[in-house]
Simulated assay, not measured.
Amino acid sequence: MSRLDSMLRRLTAQRDGLNWAAEQIRTMEGDVLDMGLGNGRTYDHLRAILPARRIWVIDRVLQCHPSCIPPDQDFLQGEAKPMLVRLDTEGRRIALAHYDFGFGVKEKDVAEAAALSPAIARVMVPGGIIVSGQPLAGFEKLVGPEGIPPGRYMFYRAG
């Protein structure tokens, strides 16, 4: 498979997974959290499919497309763990989280996801959904929407 085909499959799986997750939380209270803003495509999609929800964003740096800059009060710039602690301390609760942090080194990315899992769990509402590009620890693993190959994206429910 070409790298272009692989990227298209990844982006399609991400979109379909987020749409599925948004449907799962329709009647649930809580905000949305995008961990890893990048260029802002996912944040922009979350705004489109969940327009009534507050969407928090965590990233080390703000370097997204100008049309995808979150409001200052919703952008938490810095390392993930202190930003998750801040959300928890402020009593913010998340119904849907998207995890997309990464250094581009698989072993390092998997280790970071596992290390951040307890902090993510503390901000989630019971039953909240997490869509992740990396394996997380301590959550109920879910079968996501049809058509997404196993391991392409992971889906979890918070306890």
Score class of each variant (00 low, 15 high):
residue 120 I to F: 04
residue 61 V to A: 14
residue 62 L to D: 06
residue 100 D to S: 14
residue 18 L to R: 03
residue 37 L to V: 08
residue 151 G to K: 02
residue 11 L to K: 09
residue 102 G to E: 04
residue 98 H to I: 00
residue 139 F to Q: 00
residue 123 V to R: 03
residue 158 A to R: 09
residue 150 P to A: 12
residue 132 S to F: 06
residue 74 D to K: 02
residue 58 I to Y: 04
residue 34 D to C: 12
residue 101 F to E: 03
residue 158 A to V: 08
residue 117 S to M: 03
residue 36 G to S: 07
residue 78 G to Y: 07
residue 150 P to R: 11
residue 92 R to M: 12
residue 96 L to Y: 04
residue 60 R to G: 15
residue 98 H to Y: 14
residue 35 M to L: 15
residue 32 V to P: 08
residue 22 A to L: 07
residue 8 L to N: 10
residue 35 M to Q: 07
residue 159 G to Y: 02
residue 10 R to A: 10
residue 19 N to V: 15
residue 23 E to K: 13
residue 156 Y to P: 02
residue 2 S to W: 03
residue 2 S to I: 00
residue 136 L to G: 02
residue 142 L to I: 04
residue 30 G to P: 04
residue 62 L to V: 11
residue 67 S to V: 06
residue 87 L to K: 10
residue 59 D to K: 07
residue 40 G to H: 12
residue 32 V to G: 02
residue 74 D to E: 11
residue 136 L to F: 02
residue 152 R to T: 14
residue 12 T to S: 14
residue 101 F to R: 00
residue 114 A to L: 02
residue 6 S to Q: 14
residue 130 I to F: 07
residue 52 A to L: 13
residue 142 L to M: 14
residue 97 A to E: 06
residue 138 G to A: 05
residue 40 G to Y: 08
residue 61 V to P: 00
residue 9 R to N: 12
residue 43 Y to L: 10
residue 59 D to A: 12
residue 36 G to C: 07
residue 65 H to M: 06
residue 42 T to W: 09
residue 2 S to K: 09
residue 64 C to D: 08
residue 90 E to W: 04
residue 145 P to D: 08
residue 126 P to G: 07
residue 69 I to Y: 01
residue 158 A to E: 05
residue 103 F to M: 11
residue 43 Y to F: 15
residue 105 V to T: 09
residue 69 I to A: 14
residue 110 V to T: 05
residue 26 R to K: 15
residue 26 R to D: 08
residue 28 M to A: 07
residue 37 L to Q: 09
residue 5 D to P: 00
residue 101 F to N: 06
residue 90 E to S: 10
residue 99 Y to T: 01
residue 113 A to R: 02
residue 126 P to H: 10
residue 132 S to P: 04
residue 127 G to F: 09
residue 147 G to N: 12
residue 83 M to E: 15
residue 52 A to T: 14
residue 123 V to H: 06
residue 85 V to D: 15
residue 62 L to S: 03
residue 104 G to V: 07
residue 126 P to C: 06
residue 148 I to M: 03
residue 74 D to C: 12
residue 109 D to I: 01
residue 126 P to M: 07
residue 6 S to T: 12
residue 153 Y to H: 13
residue 69 I to M: 07
residue 47 R to L: 12
residue 15 R to M: 08
residue 88 D to C: 13
residue 83 M to S: 15
residue 49 I to R: 09
residue 5 D to R: 15
residue 70 P to F: 11
residue 151 G to Y: 01
residue 122 R to M: 07
residue 72 D to K: 11
residue 113 A to N: 02
residue 131 V to N: 05
residue 111 A to V: 01
residue 94 I to A: 10
residue 122 R to P: 01
residue 141 K to Q: 14
residue 58 I to P: 04
residue 88 D to G: 11
residue 43 Y to K: 04
residue 106 K to M: 01
residue 147 G to F: 06
residue 8 L to F: 11
residue 141 K to A: 15
residue 122 R to I: 00
residue 57 V to P: 01
residue 99 Y to C: 01
residue 66 P to V: 11
residue 147 G to Y: 05
